[in-house]
């Protein structure tokens, strides 16, 4: 398969941990390099952002070469961005631990995050009107 970098939200820097339920305000992000199998933990620079944490995280991750992300909960903004970025695919974790994620994606065992579905623990709703190209996912 093609080399890719997977982004996963984490609440602890442990490869045997499950993913954080929160995405944009997770404590850490794990970057998984599918070629080297290396996992790098990076503190979320936008965790305490007052505005637009999800969009800032996704811009930041895209610049780091992320093309695949894992999250079981995405808010309205993240869903809009994912749905409108043809180079970014989101998957559900199926409750796997971080160390199992790369192989599960390679083996096509994880379901794609449902298009347009907001699954948020938060109370904030609202709607946006993104102007992305909306060409779906791979």
């Amino acid at each position: 398969m093609n080399i890719m970098i997977i982004l996963a939200p984490m609440s602890e820097k442990t490869t045997t941990a499950k993913l954080s339920a929160r995405f944009a305000r997770a404590d850490y992000f794990a970057f998984i390099d599918t070629e080297t199998k290396e996992i790098e933990f990076v503190e979320n620079p936008h965790k305490d952002s007052q505005h637009g944490a999800a969009s800032k995280v996704l811009s930041w991750a895209t610049k780091k070469g992320v093309t695949v992300m894992i999250s079981d909960q995405l808010g309205h903004t993240a869903v809009q961005v994912v749905d409108n970025n043809p180079n970014l695919t989101a998957y559900l974790s199926n409750d796997l631990t971080l160390d199992k994620i790369a192989d599960a994606i390679a083996n096509k065992e994880l379901p794609v995050y449902p298009e347009g579905e907001v699954r948020s623990h938060g109370k904030h709703g609202g709607s946006g009107s993104g102007r992305g190209s909306g060409r779906g996912r791979n």
Partner: peptide, 16 residues
């Protein structure tokens, strides 16, 4: 965070 790197284009989120 109203402007987002969405791959080929910059995406604009008007409500933000």
């Amino acid at each position: 965070g109203a402007l987002v790197d969405a791959g080929e284009n910059i995406m604009f989120l008007s409500t933000l």
